[in-house]
């Protein structure tokens, strides 16, 4: 039993290492030049050489991402609560939301640059714009899928809309909310890096752009790896928060 558990814990690490080994082998066997695809070992070595610069840029990207994400959470919860608790608001907001979500956010960066100049602000806003949608949808779904019988029970006790929202709606929407946070945080990274790539002097996105303009592909890949690691770390943090705060929704689930 214990052995099985250890193996399960090791599996993600093994698969990650396996991918790197495969990547290293493919590059070496087919003799792929480093300006096309560098080996992971080379990328890591170069990453270490530039670790001070990378650290500075990564810190900035993380800060930008989290700022955009935080705004997305507040905005997403408020809008999701409105959309999920009122049929009229749902009907009014739904086409706008879907339409807005279909617009590629990279296309908005030039507009944001015109308004706010290049740098941190457009990156934060892009991270926010790209990540609030799943939060809105999930919170709204959690609220709107309340069992009609339960609503009847509460209404026949004299419950107001607010009572129903607080006693049942929000607790019930929590698992949906936390599930959306995991998606939203990874999207927020996409948003901030896109904006940094297009219009910034700082951040991992900018670092990769300037590295590729110098044909320093190992450094580009080091940047990609750093983003991936930050994304995994953030995802895992929200995963743990989710499991702790909504234990009831994961009852008897063997993955816990």
């Amino acid at each position: 039993m214990k052995k099985k558990l250890n193996l399960r814990k090791a599996t993600p690490w093994l698969s990650a290492i396996g991918l790197f080994v495969l990547w290293e082998l493919v590059v070496r066997i087919f003799n792929i030049p480093p300006y096309v695809l560098p080996t992971p070992s080379e990328s890591i070595i170069v990453g270490w050489q530039f670790h001070e610069a990378i650290w500075m840029h990564a810190y900035h990207t993380l800060y930008t991402t989290l700022a955009g994400f935080a705004i997305a959470v507040v905005f997403g919860v408020v809008l999701g609560a409105l959309v999920g608790s009122s049929r009229a608001i749902y009907d009014a907001a739904n086409p706008l939301l879907v339409g807005f979500n279909s617009v590629p956010k990279v296309a908005l960066v030039p507009v944001l640059v015109m308004w706010f100049g290049i740098g941190t602000v457009p990156a934060i806003i892009t991270a926010f714009l790209i990540s609030f949608f799943p939060i809105v949808v999930n919170v709204a779904t959690g609220l709107a899928t309340l069992e009609p019988e339960l609503r009847d029970v509460l209404r026949s006790l004299g419950a107001t809309r607010r009572d129903i929202l607080i006693k049942v709606g929000f607790p019930r929407a929590m698992p949906y909310f936390f599930a959306s946070l995991k998606v939203a945080i990874t999207l927020a990274f996409v948003g901030s890096v896109i904006s940094e790539t297009v219009a910034s002097n700082v951040g991992v996105g900018y670092l990769m752009l300037s590295a590729s303009s110098k044909f320093n592909m190992p450094l580009v890949f080091a940047g990609l790896l750093v983003i991936a690691v930050m994304g995994i770390a953030m995802y895992e943090i929200f995963n743990v928060i989710e499991r702790r705060s909504t234990k009831w929704a994961n009852r008897g689930n063997p993955t816990n």
């Binding site: 069992e147 019988e149 339960l150 009847d152 029970v153 209404r155 026949s156 006790l157 004299g158 049942v168 607790p171 019930r172 929590m174 909504t246 009831w248 929704a249 009852r251």
Partner: peptide, 18 residues
């Protein structure tokens, strides 16, 4: 409008899981 003195139970127990 909805009465405020009613108790209700259905086939589905609709207990709150949390």
């Amino acid at each position: 409008g909805p009465l405020k003195i009613v108790g209700m139970a259905f086939q589905n127990p609709t207990l709150l899981p949390w």
